[in-house]
Write a protein that binds this DNA or RNA. Sequence first.
DNA 1: GATCCTCTTGTTCCCGGTAACATTTCACGT
DNA 2: ACGTGAAATGTTACCGGGAACAAGAGGATC
Lengths: 340, 340
Amino acid sequence: MSTRSASDRPSMRQVAETAGVSHMTVSRVLNGHPSIKESTRDKVLHAVEQLGYHRNIAARALALQRTLRIGAVVETEAEFGPASALRAIHRAARRRGYSVSSVALDEDETGDPDRAFQQLLALGIDALCLVTPRSASVAAVRAASLDVPVLVVKPEREPELLRVCVDQQLGVTMAVDHLAALGHRDVLYVSGPMDWLDARARERAFRARAQSWGMRERPIVAGDWSADFGYDFAIGLERVPEYTAIVAANDEVALGIVHGLHDRGLRVPDDLSVVGFDDAPFSRHSIPPLTTVRQPFEALGAAVVDVLLAAVEGLEIPQRTKIPPELVVRLSTAKARTAP
Amino acid sequence: MSTRSASDRPSMRQVAETAGVSHMTVSRVLNGHPSIKESTRDKVLHAVEQLGYHRNIAARALALQRTLRIGAVVETEAEFGPASALRAIHRAARRRGYSVSSVALDEDETGDPDRAFQQLLALGIDALCLVTPRSASVAAVRAASLDVPVLVVKPEREPELLRVCVDQQLGVTMAVDHLAALGHRDVLYVSGPMDWLDARARERAFRARAQSWGMRERPIVAGDWSADFGYDFAIGLERVPEYTAIVAANDEVALGIVHGLHDRGLRVPDDLSVVGFDDAPFSRHSIPPLTTVRQPFEALGAAVVDVLLAAVEGLEIPQRTKIPPELVVRLSTAKARTAP
DNA sequence: GATCCTCTTGTTCCCGGTAACATTTCACGT
DNA sequence: ACGTGAAATGTTACCGGGAACAAGAGGATC
């Protein structure tokens, strides 16, 4: 099959001519307008088929005053979590006939959210979402007071903004419960950067659940999301014998921690259990394979797009917007060794 | 700063009115037309600034008969390599004022490249690139005979298509040389799927270089790109003592191999050295950290966009299109144990 | 001072869709 | 047969830019 060129792409008027109708009739058929005679619809669809016609998106956008484009701002695409969420949003949007333009704040952007918004607005977007934002980005999007619908992917409700999230509290709770069931009472929590709202929510959830199990209160360590951090942290960790388990901000940090402990001659899970977050592809085959909380990115992406497009199209906003993650138990967690 | 809504976004005519000129003068200023009086340009730019004006991309696309959009087809976004390449292309395109719409063949698409092309053409694209394609995709893009410029990211030249690639041969050569220098003569090569052109090129390069070092000829194993495959492979590998090193298709496979060997009680690098490909983020902190060939994705993305836009805009096509990777030596490789 | 050029700017139309309104067609009741 | 209203379809204008052509201004030439 040979595909035609941009230049000889047929227009709606040509389709109309082929079908022996006016271009408006073609437009109506393609938009599912109700009052079109069956026979006319067939003629038109046949002509469309015959010419291999596609509507011109740019012309449509111009006439509709809608771009059929969603903007997405993500803090970084380098981490597995945000990148996966973004990909899922892409896919879900495409299924709905929308495309997604994304900007990552950690690259050429000098991390200025406002510039990112400007960039996306210049492109023309019908809606905007912030994927697992830091608090500064949420503040910036409020200040910008865009008037396209704005959605944040973050744990707490956000007045006047749309919101969808993974149930971080549930994820952390499952992890803590798992450790508790294995007899751990001395658990160290290594958080992501505290200005990421996801990290903050997890940390709160950890504190609450650890407390309810009567675990010993431990200082929360805040790092970044990188394996390098995990490694350095593990290397520098003092009074290791006081702990029996570590819960890490994500799988990368967990991996780094395992590596660091290994380099100190400590073994996972014999000396310490380690739990990650995300279920990145490598987690299944790290040594030892990581127990982790798998995030439901596909469902998240679908929910984001559902909510956003409902808002754009003036429909009722779905309310089921907190998506449960799943605990994946592997070998990096085991029964707590008896108290030191 | 408050950003205006899609609805009250000013048009070029409003800017023109504010500046006291015609809309064409505004258009000329914005397009850098030479014959514009300095004072007029200033007036216009001032008005643009004052109104926070951005040109409407859709209207521009319609008038220019160009979409300022590049299509990208990638076999999968789930692997680190293709995903990184794609991200880099995105970034490079944005710097040039283009956006990228991508389709991954392994998801909702039933893997049919032709459908992916159709989807992208329906969106309207000025150029198309195939990122690290399988041979079937290249065949499909030829058959489709699109008449936008088409670029393939693959090792061999491709008559009539544009091409840019990472120098896979050099990468493999560096890896083999590294092993040879450590005294390895019995090296097993675990390839990616042979219908991926990158995998094929690496395999050929491996054969050639291994031979030139006088390494023993070994059957090439073809798998997929996953850690699961690497694990299963390692578990099932027979006559292990005959080998002193394994070169894997990518870091994930390498990770799985290390894991599998570990589960068999074999140690890396003491019993076997392992080399990966890509330098994925986890590779630095796996146990042991992986020796690997780092791919220059940023440069690759920039080159892809340079070539493609040169073609779109009718400029001279850059010829420097083979980008050298870099060997990263870590702990998964060591001196070969003396012959078994 | 008239002519011709070049520099600069303006006018008009078109790109390919959709909305709003106009018009034709047709079934039906009387 | 004719009026009537709904269904089906057509006509026109407009979305916001850019290309082509037109036109006014100012300078050089003779």
